[in-house]
Write a protein that binds this DNA or RNA. Structure first.
Lengths: 232, 232
DNA sequence: CAGTGGTCTAGACCACAAG
DNA sequence: TTGTGGTCTAGACCACTGG
């Protein structure tokens, strides 16, 4: 007999029952064992299907208590954090970047705090403009920590943006990212070919390798930029 | 002998090898079979560990070709889409909402397109202000599709916000969400207790149940709002 | 063709928590 | 105490694709 009951099939069937209200929010669903009997498959197969549903927030699962349809079914959206060059190219445009500033200096207090750094160490401070079809796309302000990136002063960031170099050469263990909106300043407006006060989408990201901060970056997108994600 | 080699342990060890450069970007790592021998465990256990690493973008896996460390290790950030009330309460504030407008009307063209609706049907149009500690937090403009939400005109949205009612009562099969920035208008500024032109963080979300659009919503956050996510 | 990852199975033991 | 989910095992077959 063929396997019509792959874990994907089972997951789809179970998701359907949740979505169409066969099993209502808060309700207990049959145990893995019973579902395995129903679908004539091994419990591990049902487990794989249910785990996926729990991961997306549709189910709450607890040992002994069983699996319940989530009462407040949070949904999760997964953002892909890409190299800016790829993001530009994905939009069908030609990518180019310009390194505007690149100097060693001590970061301001606010950033020391953000990077969880306690010494007044010198870092590499960069300003980069990323362009799509030669039109301003993102203005990037970045701080790079030379205590982690030993050879950082030898890299030619005119050839490769720090954004891309880091992704290819340095992996982080953890980090945080925040999204917000900001009115752009006169000088930023100049760089982004926009008007002072325009609302811009801002991403701030800081990454660490174990306890050491690698880099902190602020990406100021051109006005009208929007980031889109599919929900499933 | 105890199992010191749970799939989590194995995943951590393998992740470490990728992060510290033992295995470099683009490099082929040992097959599941070999790793299972190394860790003295079943292949399924290694598989579970590797699958997780592939899911987060650290590995590229292909049948026959084996597993390679990703050349462009995309990282993924998972956003939890919560009920606004919970988001306010998570920030330690008291939640309250005010239904400002609630009327039946035909949505404008732009929204018909966004909702992939082809008929000039009447919908429920709502404006809601969400408050945190009685201070404006988010201004919400929402369209609800009565062809899917049959009893929508009977719900008392003064008691429960549409945001919360929908999450608890209607599940979607898919949707899309976009993040952007906007200069707030004079009337929005009035509602949000801000100034005209201030930059506000905007979330637009549209959800469907199979082919039918359920709702489309635009959330205009108070200036200074930011959304933060952990990367791991 | 052969070796890889993808999946499924039947069984087992364990950790947990509701009753 | 007992039934649940969480995990691991040893083995198997399949789908895919590089050589």
């Amino acid at each position: 007999m063929k396997n019509f009951a792959s874990w994907q099939n089972i997951q789809d069937m179970l998701r359907r029952r949740i979505i169409d209200g066969t099993w209502k929010p808060g309700e207990l669903i049959p145990s893995e064992k019973r579902l395995a009997e129903e679908f004539q498959c091994a419990r591990a197969t049902v487990n794989r299907a249910l785990r996926g549903l729990a991961d997306t927030g549709l189910l709450d699962r607890r040992r002994r208590a069983g699996s319940r349809v989530a009462t407040e079914p949070s949904r999760y959206a997964t953002l892909k954090i890409d190299i800016i060059r790829l993001e530009v190219e994905r939009r069908g445009a030609k990518y180019r970047h310009v390194l505007i500033e690149n100097r060693r200096t001590v970061p301001p207090r606010r950033l020391q705090y953000q990077m969880k750094i306690h010494d007044e160490i010198e870092m590499l401070s960069q300003s980069t403009l990323h362009l799509a079809d030669d039109k301003p796309f993102v203005y990037e302000e970045r701080w790079l920590n030379p205590s982690v990136l030993r050879n950082i002063f030898q890299i030619d960031f005119d050839q490769v943006s720090a954004n891309e170099w880091l992704v290819r050469n340095v992996m982080f263990t953890h980090g945080d990212i925040s999204f917000s909106a900001a009115n752009i300043t006169a000088s930023e407006a100049d760089l982004l070919d926009a008007n002072e006060g325009d609302a811009a989408f801002v991403i701030e990201r800081t990454t660490w390798q174990d306890e050491q901060c690698i880099t902190s970056v602020r990406l100021l997108h051109r006005p009208s930029f929007s980031m889109r994600v599919e929900l499933s």
